[in-house]
Structure formats: C-alpha cells, structure tokens
C-alpha cells in the first residue's frame, strides 16, 4: 500500500471519530497483565485514527518510531527526539503528547490521533486550513506537530485569547519563526471550529 493511498483511506475512515475525546483517565488494565515482556519483539496493538494496528515491536520502541518506521505514518516528525521541540506531537486520549517520549507498548488501549487522521476526506481540518490561509509555515517541518498541538489545544479551549493560545502552544518550536502566522491561524481555526463547519 502506498503511503498516500493509506493516508487517504485513513482520512475517510477518520470522519467518524474526533468526538470521542474522553476526559476521564481510567486506571486501565496493564498491557500483558503485568508480566515482564521483551527485550525482543512483543505483540502490540495500537488504536490510531480509529483503526487498530497489530505490530510486533520491542518494548524500547517509541510511539514516534512505531508510527514512522513501522506504520509509514510519517506526519509526526523526529527532530530533537528528546521532548523539547514538539515536531512529534500527537494526541493520545485527548491530550497532546510528545510521541518521542512515549513507549509504543505504553500507548496501547488508548485513542491515538495523528496528523494523518484529522482531515475529512479531501477537506482539511480547520486548523490545517487556517495554517494554509495565514502562511503559518516556511520550511514546514514543525507544521504537523504545531497543527496537532493547536487542535489538541482548541479541543479543550474552544474560545481562547491570543495569550491563552500562545501559552497552549508553548511546547512547540519553529526555527523559521513563523509564529505570527500561526497565532492568526489558531485564532481563525477557533472561530471556524465553533461555527460547526467541521464534524
């Protein structure tokens, strides 16, 4: 399967989710019933953009490496690989996280959203569309992480002030310095999302 075909498939299927962001952090049953696993590959099931994926991964594999190297979902970027830059941002159980510092084995049983899953068919998510409208990128490498961080922020703060939006995106860096466009984009996206034009 080609990556683009795969992404399109996920995009169509992804329209049904997005509303299931559960706030409650249930004390989930541990993977493998608590027994020691590894160090070789172990069966791991990840629920990504509404679809289950069965993988065989070593416990040391991060969620970011699982996405990029084992599932061909290369939207989340590996830049610092040490929980500083935000380019690897994905949404897990409704919260934005750095996928470089989450073990794949530890992300089991949770709803994982990546940049590949937020558009509806060929229609961009309001955050992505607002980034386009405001030229909120230059080289574009930080962009998927920023879009996911902005989406995660707006899901929880639908009507932010500029200051709140800046604070909400403090975990992401853009070396090109396109913050001016991003601020405008996030505020525009908040208006679009409140308008209910996105499912």
């Amino acid at each position: 399967m080609s990556r683009r075909g795969f992404i399109r498939g996920v995009g169509i299927g992804g329209g049904a989710l997005g509303t299931g962001l559960l706030e409650k952090e249930a004390l989930a049953a541990p993977p493998a019933g608590g027994k020691t696993e590894g160090p070789g590959p172990v069966p791991i099931t990840l629920n990504i953009n509404g679809k289950p994926y069965n993988l065989n991964l070593e416990p040391r594999v991060t969620l970011l490496d699982a996405l990029r190297n084992h599932l061909d979902l290369t939207g989340a970027k590996k830049v610092c690989d040490r929980a500083t830059c935000g380019a690897c941002t994905v949404i897990v159980s409704g919260k934005v996280v750095y996928s470089c510092t989450v073990l794949a084995i530890d992300a089991q049983g949770k709803e994982i959203q990546t940049i590949e899953g937020i558009s509806t068919g060929n229609r961009l998510h309001p955050v992505s569309a607002a980034f386009v409208n405001h030229d909120a990128q230059q080289c574009g490498y930080c962009t998927p992480g920023f879009v996911m961080a902005a989406k995660g922020f707006l899901d929880r703060n639908p009507n932010p002030t500029l200051e709140q939006a800046e604070h909400g995106l403090c975990g992401n860096l853009c070396r090109c310095g396109t913050y001016v466009g991003m601020r405008k984009a996030v505020l525009e996206a908040s208006r679009e999302m409140k308008g209910g034009r996105h499912a």
Partner: peptide, 10 residues
C-alpha cells in the same frame, strides 16, 4: 536506546 524488558504490574 539499548534494549530493555518491560513490565506494568497492577
């Protein structure tokens, strides 16, 4: 990252 085993006791 060097290999390791993983356990998640309940």
């Amino acid at each position: 990252m060097k290999w390791f085993d993983y356990a998640a006791p309940a």
